[in-house]
Design a protein around this nucleic acid. Structure first.
Lengths: 159, 159
DNA sequence: TATTGTTATACTCTATAACTATA
DNA sequence: TATAGTTATAGAGTATAACAATA
């Protein structure tokens, strides 16, 4: 095969970085559609997921995980508290800090979010063979680890 | 193999959809860093790339490609025109439409953007073997095609 | 009538700084 | 003095509607 580049156009290389950004945006869009009926945004979903896995986490720690500013976290938690999904409790060991926890409704909604995530997964991997899915998952997990990204979190999750 | 799910943690599955969104955001962040010295944003870069590949494109077509609103395109082109990177020319065949083209400076900057994209590629795929890169690229390209995404464009490119 | 580009406006998200109460 | 959370404010990006020129 003399011209292995023929399958690609070498002046327009479809690069991994570009494809990741493209597919990442697409995956986030699909997820946003899936959770729209639940009445929360992808940002809210990311916050609920983190609190669910780290009960009692302080707002400052949450801000660091999200890559958001403390002032943004105030607004996010205000909204979740008004919706009855999360609660603030003043820490007894450091009374400056607010400990964050999910309410029962918050935990129920988190379960719905997992279903939405599974629906997203089916839609995004539609048309791939099981072997391709396994390969792709392993490569992405390896890459995420190599790039030093948090296994649970990524900044924003589209919004 | 009775329990093929053992390699994943079924209570916290690192899913493909999640990893794509995480790594896509990361790839976009890396690209944003790479082009910062060039004085343009990722949005601007996406616009320059499209105009470079479709000289004379109308603002409405550009808006469709970007997934942006016509009013947003006005602001984007205003900025690129002020920076001397792109030009508007009233179409002679449809005098409602503005034909968009790059200036010489715009073409020079586009060449710099390609270098930045190559630097992003190296950073994002750092630690992967050549075989892993090939596998990953093929899988992502397949997926992008299956999901009906444009080979050149994705909405926003982080911004 | 419909479409292209434009302006105006509102809402959200991001970023910064100043403030309070604790430490 | 430093930190956690809050408030206020300004700047982007996104969305809608209304408008002028043209089709």
């Amino acid at each position: 095969m003399l011209y292995s580049d023929e399958v690609n156009d070498s002046t327009r290389p479809a690069r991994i970085g570009f494809l990741l950004a493209q597919l990442g945006t697409h995956a986030a869009d699909v997820f946003a559609e899936q959770i729209q009926p639940l009445g929360i945004t992808p940002s809210d979903a990311g916050v609920l997921r983190i609190i669910g896995r780290s009960p009692g986490i302080a707002q400052r720690q949450l801000a660091d995980k999200l890559g958001a500013l403390p002032s943004r976290v105030v607004a996010l938690i205000d909204k979740l508290e008004r919706a009855g999904l999360a609660e603030r409790t003043r820490s007894t060991t450091d009374r400056r800090a607010q400990e964050l926890n999910l309410t029962d409704d918050g935990r129920k909604l988190l379960a719905e979010l997992r279903k939405a995530a599974m629906a997203q997964e089916r839609e995004v991997t539609n048309g791939l063979t099981d072997e391709q899915r396994t390969q792709l998952h392993d490569l992405l997990a390896t890459m995420s680890h190599l790039q030093g990204l948090d296994a649970d979190v990524h900044p924003g999750y589209r919004g």
